[in-house]
Amino acid sequence: MKERTLLRNDWTREEIEQIYNLPLLELVYKAATVHREWHNPEEVQMSTLLSIKTGGCPEDCSYCGQAARYHTNIKVQALLPTEKVIEHAKNAKEGGSSRFCMAAAWREVRNNRDFDRVIDMVKGVNELGMEVCCTLGMLTEEQAIRLQEAGLYAYNHNLDTSEQYYEEIISTRTFDNRINTINNVRKAGITVCSGGIIGLGETHGDRISMLLTLATMLKHPESVPINALARVKGTPLENNEKTDTWEMIRMIATARIIMPSSMVRLSAGRIEMTDFEQGWCFMAGANSIFTGERETLLVTPNPGVSEDLQLLKTLGLKPMVKEKSNVLKNEI
């Protein structure tokens, strides 16, 4: 049996740039080869994302319709009742999802009753046997430990873009704030979910820089979401051009090659992709998607469960059945 491509954390910018700029078909071939060395190419992890607290965020992320300062059609919603969240998680599990992610539009976690309720939600979803993930904004090490003790499996905190371009997109926090939260999550023994968004107006160099930051972490993020900008009316980036799917495929393939053990998630932007385009993304090494009924997801549209199951069936793929204990969580 052919040996796996080695895991590396010492990538140079030049090496990643060389991979990124390969002719597209050669790049996809190399990525598909690496994917088969590390993963079952017939399986796709289905993850469900639920907004447990929507809108009213004090941040100024240029892409986000949940920022309070932008006038969008997004309705502000207080933190959902714990029982309702658990019900959504049960429905997600029945629909084939093995991971349930809860998102709150907060700048940072505060030690208050709302955080206590999130802890209860984490415990409840964990008891269902699902991988439970949260994305709640900035996090201290103590808060991360508390989440880990409640059973949190993963924490999402995307880099969004390169360190150099970051301040063009967000001014209310710094790139280092993002890195600090990821480090706090690691110290607490929680797996990391971190990727970025393309289509923000960044250069190819910015994309390479973002991938370099992820691929040179002491441990690669266990999950790497690649998002295409979802253009939300009322935000500063609403008039950006639609992200070219070939650019998404190039990003996914490069991420797969340089972070072979990670789950690479085809995230935002799928609603604007054809089945053919999504098929290319899976060929390039994507093996995870966000799914769920449209009304239960975040504030941008997404295909529904039945559509996704049909797509997987058409492509000869199947939902991943994933036991948490099988993932090398204790290697952190």
Rank of each mutant, 00 (worst) to 15 (best):
A150N: 01
N40K: 04
I182A: 13
E168P: 00
I190M: 08
N9C: 11
S223H: 07
E42A: 13
Q148I: 03
I16Q: 02
R146K: 14
V118W: 00
S325L: 14
V118T: 00
I271W: 04
R256I: 13
R99E: 14
A284H: 01
P319L: 12
S288R: 08
I19F: 05
A253I: 08
A188N: 03
I289G: 08
G189T: 07
P225L: 06
E141C: 07
T213L: 10
K2D: 14
V34N: 04
M138G: 10
S47F: 01
N177K: 13
N302S: 13
Y63Q: 09
R110G: 03
K90Y: 09
N302W: 06
V305N: 15
L266Y: 12
N183F: 00
P301G: 07
Q310C: 14
E238F: 03
V85Q: 08
F175M: 04
H39R: 12
C57E: 12
F100H: 03
K187H: 09
W246Y: 14
N239T: 11
D120C: 06
D116Y: 01
T140R: 13
F290G: 04
T54D: 02
P23M: 06
T216M: 11
N9M: 09
V224M: 08
I289Y: 00
K84I: 07
L147H: 00
T172Y: 00
I289Q: 05
D160Y: 01
P303R: 04
I16A: 03
N40W: 01
N21L: 14
K123C: 05
H204M: 13
T181I: 10
G195R: 04
L218D: 14
R8A: 08
S98C: 12
D116E: 15
D176G: 01
S162M: 09
R231C: 07
R13N: 13
E127R: 11
E42K: 14
R186T: 05
E149R: 13
H88C: 04
L50Y: 08
I52Y: 00
Q143P: 01
Y165M: 12
G129L: 11
A255C: 15
A32I: 04
Y153P: 01
L128D: 10
L50H: 09
S209H: 10
L152D: 02
N227W: 04
E59M: 04
G55E: 05
I182T: 02
V118I: 15
L298Q: 06
S325H: 14
V76S: 02
L128M: 07
K90L: 14
V34S: 02
F276G: 06
K313R: 15
R13S: 11
I52E: 10
F276R: 14
L136W: 02
R173D: 00
C64N: 08
H39D: 04
V321T: 09
P23F: 03
G55Q: 05
E168N: 11
L159N: 02
G195I: 02
Q148G: 15
W280F: 14
E277W: 10
F175L: 11
H88M: 12
I190V: 08
K84D: 11
N240I: 13
L237Q: 06
G196V: 00
S262D: 09
A154C: 13
D275S: 07
L22P: 00
M273G: 03
L139G: 03
C57M: 10
H35K: 13
